[in-house]
Design a protein around this nucleic acid. Sequence first.
DNA 1: TGTAAATTCTATAAAAATAGTAGAGTTAAA
DNA 2: TTTAACTCTACTATTTTTATAGAATTTACA
Lengths: 137, 137
Amino acid sequence: MLSQKTKYALKALLYLAQQDINHISKTTDIAESANIPKKFLEQILLDLKRGHLVGSKQGKLGGYYLLKSGNEITLADIHRLFDGAIALLPCASLNFYERCSDCKNESECLLRHGLMTIRDETLKAMQGITIASLVKK
Amino acid sequence: MLSQKTKYALKALLYLAQQDINHISKTTDIAESANIPKKFLEQILLDLKRGHLVGSKQGKLGGYYLLKSGNEITLADIHRLFDGAIALLPCASLNFYERCSDCKNESECLLRHGLMTIRDETLKAMQGITIASLVKK
DNA sequence: TGTAAATTCTATAAAAATAGTAGAGTTAAA
DNA sequence: TTTAACTCTACTATTTTTATAGAATTTACA
């Protein structure tokens, strides 16, 4: 399941994608429209900025805007940025690989291969969902 | 990501699936072989029993055994039993449906449809992975 | 130059979920 | 009757999640 944070991030990105190009959105407006606690959203937008998905303008008349077009931002990107690995175990992850602490012999692990199959299929599906594709529906 | 509990459950089921038919396995043996804390495993096996995946025999010479054949137990079943919904949000779930608390109008939610697509694909992939298929590799 | 309104940064805190541990009770074989 | 297994309930420590608070910084504009 997605965390609240990831869900809010998606909703914020969907909001931004629906604005006119070059429009700069205030946190307050995103928060009200998407029903997200404002102070929490501030953090999330900063995370999105650090992830290079949105840009910001400071000061009065400042706010946030998309850095990439909607079809360049996939669900997989956002999941990885906030919730981390897409694989079901760290040992089966491409971007967040880690050995299982309880694993006696990774190369003989019966679980790992199956979970890598799932990862490949889930990843493909998640890369097929973009902010643009969600807006279109 | 799977919780430790789900991972342990999978490892325990894999262990059981590799025993001779009619063999009854002691918690201690499963714990040692799969490197799972014994007392934690006890709880997990009880959960698996309540989920009708394993049966048990009490008393001396007692233990656990599979109730279903390995190809009848899918990763989706186990995920649902321990980690709950397969969908990425409760509003997109088949078995664990719940309204999002922050949702203003579910029928107009741009996220939901995309997440249902992911759910269908992930579910299909997870139903394709069974205890038997994992043991075969 | 001052004020208003926005982002930015760091710290804190409450609640929930996770990952176990402890120990008493029950069952059944020998 | 003893032993060795499962069963059940409660508890606890840690981590993660979900925020909230408030001060600092930046910029537009009068």
